[in-house]
Design a protein around this nucleic acid. Sequence first.
DNA 1: TATGAATGAGATTTCATTCAT
DNA 2: AATGAATGAAATCTCATTCAT
Lengths: 212, 212, 212, 212
Amino acid sequence: MTQTAPRGGVPTHGRELRARGQQTMVRLLDAGTRVFADRGYHAARVDDVVKAARTSHGTFYLYFASKEDLFRAIAQNVAAEMVDLARELPSLDGDGGRADDGEFRAWLTRFQALYGRHGDFLRTWTDAEIGDGDLGRIAQDLVTEFSRQLAIRVRAAAPGLEPRTTAFALVSMIERTSYYVQARQLRVAPAAMLDVIANVTRAALHGQAAVA
Amino acid sequence: MTQTAPRGGVPTHGRELRARGQQTMVRLLDAGTRVFADRGYHAARVDDVVKAARTSHGTFYLYFASKEDLFRAIAQNVAAEMVDLARELPSLDGDGGRADDGEFRAWLTRFQALYGRHGDFLRTWTDAEIGDGDLGRIAQDLVTEFSRQLAIRVRAAAPGLEPRTTAFALVSMIERTSYYVQARQLRVAPAAMLDVIANVTRAALHGQAAVA
Amino acid sequence: MTQTAPRGGVPTHGRELRARGQQTMVRLLDAGTRVFADRGYHAARVDDVVKAARTSHGTFYLYFASKEDLFRAIAQNVAAEMVDLARELPSLDGDGGRADDGEFRAWLTRFQALYGRHGDFLRTWTDAEIGDGDLGRIAQDLVTEFSRQLAIRVRAAAPGLEPRTTAFALVSMIERTSYYVQARQLRVAPAAMLDVIANVTRAALHGQAAVA
Amino acid sequence: MTQTAPRGGVPTHGRELRARGQQTMVRLLDAGTRVFADRGYHAARVDDVVKAARTSHGTFYLYFASKEDLFRAIAQNVAAEMVDLARELPSLDGDGGRADDGEFRAWLTRFQALYGRHGDFLRTWTDAEIGDGDLGRIAQDLVTEFSRQLAIRVRAAAPGLEPRTTAFALVSMIERTSYYVQARQLRVAPAAMLDVIANVTRAALHGQAAVA
DNA sequence: TATGAATGAGATTTCATTCAT
DNA sequence: AATGAATGAAATCTCATTCAT
């Protein structure tokens, strides 16, 4: 409080780590992912994390400056994975037929799988985000990049549409359905959901009525 | 943003309320809505609420059993308003032309307005929800009812489609775009968003390509 | 950490207090004075203070924002008392004889008494002071005011001397001897110390050799 | 400010030190002096010390049993230097004129220089001292020896005075003014301060009024 | 019906010291 | 002789809830 001098144990952002250190850090990240997913950001205790990682409080703060810092680190990893996937969105061109549909469906499958892996964590994002600029920015960048990538495909596939807004609507649909499915808020089989998303997307871009 | 009818907010001990008590309760509900919207569920302090309501801690617990109880009361009011709106969804029939489009767009406008009023509060829902069954149920019921109402319209309008899943996808899109627009995560004019949603919906149901 | 909103329980600086509150605050100030004096600033635990005041942690933070805040409050009280005393310094004029000596010696007696009452606390000041601007300022103001008051008397009594520096040297002597006597670092009777200080002061101002 | 002769700093296990070990120990003593001076005893982190000495925690505890042990080692060195100086106090005899004044003033200059070198460290002494017998003794011994040496000179120079108490008052003045000047609590040029101290001392011993 | 005061369990974070290599 | 990693006891502070009037 009174202290302004730099803290003793500076958390590892850039510190060189030996094998043992690497291991501990991974254990903490894994434990954090699990605990945040299980309890949510606020209910998660640093104590839960260190217990899950079989280490001590002191060690935790050797690697992360705070609970928030750990969350941010995990969030960044997850966000990076998702951005990578967004960049691999296939073209949505085609004659309005099913030419490229297969690729898009394959991509949606991968998206659902990724969301399945990270969904529990992602659901806690809003919980953590409140009142914090840094975290909000990561989330916003993620949505923005997703929309941007999709907008590029929309522009190419359906020149008559306003690409940014359309992409944004589709991203919202894709993300939110995954969220709800993951959260089991509605009993819908992922495969059925995928069909519908693909159909709605095709219809939106090419005016092709979906077939059940 | 401002609460008027204290529907759902049952006083702690089931007491009958005189005029003065009514007033205090409304002040607390209003204050709670504001404070939760501003800070989120966890960051909101009971102290903030009682200060905003110009009353005391003691009084707070005369009307609500806990902070969560207050949140639930507000959430129920908001959910009820939204369910009311969901039930007024117009038919989505038509010849695939724009016959009923006007009504749907009018409804979307109302939805956006309602979301504009309650959005800040709704965004904190996830924050509060984690780890709590009771609150989760209100949210789930809301989504379920929305989907159910929309599914009814879908069944009538596009018999070839799987109504539940389709409705679910559209609800996701409508809700999430509103969320993002409200949260200003993407700069899109509400009107433009409305156009796109209406078009995507029409395309999804009637295979009519959207026109910018 | 994430929180920027004002805290719930704002400490009492200006808050109106009822009788009970007044009592509690006084109990905390008394307890703090005792505990700081006994253990020093760093070794003193908030827990010690609340135990001594027969109250709880929560209550403590209702009245003081932090341990430092409590220290500052006590320090200000003590400083104010000492400044009051400084302002009552008698004139040091005289024919070089003992005309005004009596008054000065009476004042020194009062100073020693005051230092006797607050000395244990004052000794911890340096301990607390490190790295904190606010506290340093109070201490500096105290020394400055003491020197200023004494310089006024010196200017009148011995026009040939540089008043500020001389006053400063005398204040140093007065303060430090009291400190050492209080801390029992040297076994000297307060009365003997007083004689010497009075003699040195007279000699310094009027060139009158002291008589044992 | 920089430590050279590691007098007093006994290695933890009484080991004999090779050249490399000597070097490391000196680096730690130097670093400790700097860090304690900068931050004070409590705020100084062992981590700060090892960083400043470009070594590790493990190594630190190879040379010193604890943080306090390091402080004590440094304190002993400083105290020894000051005691050496105290023993070189010149005679304060004289005919009451300025015969020996020059020597005393030269000594004061050396004192000020020494205080200038070690003052930042000395100021933290009180900070560390609280609640610890061992450290307190070093400080007490230092003051005692200073007073003793000065008392010898007083006894010779002014037989009519009570030597111990008078010496004690003068030591207090000399020490405390140096402290304040060093801490820049009052803007006084060291040279002006020296003049005043010499004058007050002469007046106290020989009843010779000071001349500005 | 209202309120100021009090509570205390529990959370985060720090850091001197020890361990294993 | 040296070191990076780990430890865990202990400290400060928070805040939903209850109490006494």
